[in-house]
Amino acid sequence: MNYLSVPNATKADRILVVDDAPDNVLLVQTILEEEGYEISTAENGFSALSQIDKSAPDLVLLDVMMPGMDGYEVTKRIRQNKELPFIPILLITAHDSASVVQGLDMGADDFIRKPVEMDELLARVRSLLRLKHSVDERNSIALQREDFVSRLAHDLRTPLVAADRMLTLMQQGALGEISPQMSDAFGTMVRSNKNLIALVNMLLEVYRYEAGRKSLSFAPVDLRQLITEVAEELAALADVKNLSVNLDLSESAESAPIAKYPGDRLELHRLLTNLIGNAIKFTDSGSIDVSLKAANSPAYTSFKNQPLAWVIIQIQDTGPGISAAEQTKLFERFSSGTHKTSGTGLGLHLCRQIVEAHRGTIHVESELGKGSLFTIRLPC
């Protein structure tokens, strides 16, 4: 579609003109409507924000100097509203370059000085609308790609689950007696199929988080009990490699948040399983140490100016360590590292999504040959 020739477009671009001077509004409105744009107007910042909340325009043409709420504040509030699509903002200013810098820092995309030259105004409007359409097209393609991945993963899961049930039945001899060699072969097939199911499930979870379609159910969680449960579930994997899994679970008087942490138990279980499982997977000898404690941090205060309580979970391994270069992208999607047993690169990315959904942080400290320490901080 050629957006340079607006009258030929299938849908006219909508521009919101915000200015407290009626003469300026009328002039700009007349010029832009002659070019085929659909124009709405607002005489102050409050009215502009109200209109934008009801129906987002394709471009905002915004005067800087207005009573009540100036153009900088309007720009700031538009950019703070994460529910809005991308809306280019063109500031009109009569001030010096310092005001331009302030406007751009607030999130404006371009500016034009008074007195306004109409040819320049039209050129800047066309330029910003091209940017708007480019961003919208990119976002549309990204959404289509994510939807395709979600549908593909969902469609893959159905036959994999069916195959898992059938293979398990065959391994158990439900369809007839099988030889020891066939039993071993079925065992390999069952394990491989379960790995595929786990991969597809993880891909679906990553998609749900990134698409904003993940719903969490928050309730009091006993983190001591949860960590103990995960460690017991993974004990067999550690035993195969002769690794010890050591738990240090706080029992102090300050540990009340640990017993009733407000979180999603299923997602926290997934988080701990991924991290402790990774520690076992990448460690060939030594131990995995998991610690849990509550602490107050004076660096972060609540609305009553009191130190916030934090739950801190640390997982230390004696594995090969992670290079500084790999640490910088460790939690990115599909960043699988260079270790021989590295996976798809989705597990740690999903861990970060879960932690951030609980408004916490996760980071790693590691040195090659000296193991890795993952630290999770969850605010109470």
Rank of each mutant, 00 (worst) to 15 (best):
190 V>H: 02
347 G>P: 09
134 S>T: 15
242 N>C: 07
95 H>Y: 12
210 E>H: 07
38 E>L: 01
363 H>R: 13
22 P>Y: 00
306 Q>Y: 11
139 N>Q: 12
137 E>V: 12
46 F>T: 11
169 L>E: 10
123 A>M: 12
99 S>V: 08
63 D>M: 08
325 A>P: 05
10 T>N: 13
56 A>G: 08
341 T>Q: 12
358 H>I: 03
252 S>C: 04
247 L>H: 06
325 A>F: 14
310 W>K: 08
285 S>G: 11
292 L>V: 06
366 S>R: 01
301 T>F: 08
78 I>M: 12
217 S>F: 11
324 A>Y: 09
96 D>C: 05
247 L>G: 05
292 L>T: 07
248 D>L: 13
237 L>T: 08
266 L>Q: 13
326 E>S: 13
75 T>R: 01
131 L>I: 12
343 G>I: 05
265 R>Q: 14
184 D>A: 14
208 R>F: 13
118 M>K: 02
111 F>W: 07
196 L>Q: 14
297 S>F: 09
113 R>T: 15
331 F>W: 08
28 V>T: 14
266 L>F: 10
44 N>E: 03
276 I>D: 06
16 L>N: 00
153 A>W: 03
79 R>F: 01
17 V>C: 02
195 N>H: 11
283 T>P: 02
117 E>D: 15
349 H>W: 07
284 D>M: 06
128 L>E: 06
378 L>H: 03
307 P>V: 08
61 L>S: 03
133 H>D: 10
68 G>Y: 05
12 A>Q: 05
249 L>Q: 00
366 S>K: 04
272 L>K: 06
90 L>V: 00
103 G>V: 08
291 S>E: 04
28 V>Q: 07
161 V>S: 13
289 D>N: 10
2 N>P: 03
192 S>I: 09
159 P>A: 05
219 A>Q: 13
86 F>I: 00
80 Q>E: 06
333 R>S: 11
350 L>R: 09
202 M>R: 14
218 F>M: 09
229 E>C: 01
380 C>E: 13
84 L>N: 09
86 F>L: 02
1 M>I: 09
232 E>M: 11
169 L>Q: 14
224 R>P: 05
47 S>V: 14
358 H>V: 05
29 Q>I: 00
200 V>H: 02
327 Q>K: 12
17 V>E: 04
186 F>R: 02
7 P>I: 06
181 Q>H: 12
315 I>S: 00
317 D>V: 08
180 P>E: 03
311 V>H: 02
30 T>V: 04
124 R>W: 01
113 R>W: 05
344 T>R: 11
240 V>L: 07
15 I>K: 04
340 K>P: 11
353 Q>C: 13
6 V>A: 10
371 G>S: 03
158 T>G: 01
379 P>K: 01
245 V>D: 01
330 L>Y: 14
364 V>H: 06
56 A>L: 04
235 A>L: 14
175 L>A: 15
18 V>K: 03
